[in-house]
Nucleic acid binder design. Structure first.
Lengths: 190, 190
DNA sequence: AAGAATATGTAGATCGGTCTATTTTAAGAG
DNA sequence: CTCTTAAAATAGACCGATCTACATATTCTT
């Protein structure tokens, strides 16, 4: 049955997602992943024959996709791009607080760790950020912003969100996120 | 003679600073640190008897102080807070490119890795960000911004810089930094 | 019966940390 | 100024633990 196998595979990916977001690529050991995913090491290498990099690559891709979908979902109920970004900040801040600051951006830690040394993972991280930026740029254009400015503005908005997540986690406080929230409107209402 | 010992100590700290910035806390092994610092293991534990955490704590403190001084230095030649932030972005972008994207924010990677699990290092990271934010806030007040708004604005500026560094490293491109650069003025000229 | 999936065992390397010598340095005594 | 001596610093072997990865069975599932 392929169902059971898929479940084990999914459990491993989710365990990897959690551990990688909390401690990064080097900090997430496969022993911990298999323990958290309730699967023996044999299953891990059955489902991910190329080992750790394949597992984490898929975990990052899933996490990246999840944020892309979060942006799409929140965009439906947001009256403006500014409201969308604020909603994203709120959602991520809640998620971070609820996890005791063990969660933030699911990509950032790995992105920084492997930027210069692991081409495959670097590309996946870059793609995730590219997807999020495009989602924001699309919404900006839909809101009537000049298309030639949308990319740059979306990039700055994304940087603002990423920076807020870094500062909030580093200081174990959602204050930076709330402060950045107020700056979003300034950036968009000009 | 204390001089020779201090030199070894400094070499170890600098080796740790480089490796930690490139690959983070978990990715920087002590074997690599001692090799890069040209010192045997005995010297490492002579100068840092509390081991890896002590070494990396001092390395982070030095790197944090270096950025604080960079802000102070660039502030002298900058006609406004906006110009200061742009100068900081330029300096860090050059540094990043020159290192083949092995450098970015010397604090961020560790901050994300240990935010929820290592109180001592988390505090050091938080302090570094606090210092940088205060330096920006002071300059904002000196520029005539309302003191009660300066903290929040400084926090947003810092988030913008941190986010730009994350995106630039992740995408191995200084484009995000250059785009954020343009948003800085928007944020300050309102 | 066949293949997918699971379950361990283990290999080889590396991890952080400790230990004992040995060398180097600084300071005190004459 | 030289000799002595204790501390500082260096050197590297070594420890148990953990790491990723692989090998070999065994158990499910259709």
């Amino acid at each position: 049955m392929a169902i059971k196998g898929e479940q084990t595979r999914t459990r491993l990916i989710n365990a990897a997602r959690t551990l990688v977001e909390e401690r990064g690529y080097f900090g997430a050991g496969l022993n911990e992943v298999t323990e958290a995913g309730k699967a023996p090491r044999g299953s891990l290498y059955h489902h991910f024959p190329r080992g750790k990099d394949q597992l984490i690559a898929e975990a990052l891709a899933v996490s990246g996709q999840e944020i892309t979908e979060l942006i799409a979902t929140l965009s439906e109920g947001a009256p403006s791009t500014g409201a969308l970004v604020e909603a994203v900040l709120d959602a991520l801040a809640d998620r971070m607080e609820q996890a005791g600051y063990a969660k933030g951006c699911p990509i950032a830690t790995v992105a920084l760790e492997v930027a210069a040394t692991n081409d495959a993972l670097q590309r996946i991280c870059a793609d995730a950020y590219g997807d999020w930026q495009r989602a924001l740029a699309d919404r900006l254009v839909a809101d009537g912003h000049a298309p030639d400015r949308a990319e740059g503005l979306a990039c700055s908005l994304l940087a603002l969100v990423e920076g807020a997540l870094v500062l909030a986690r580093a200081q174990r406080s959602r204050i930076p996120i709330d402060r950045v929230r107020e700056s979003v409107r300034v950036l968009l209402e000009v």
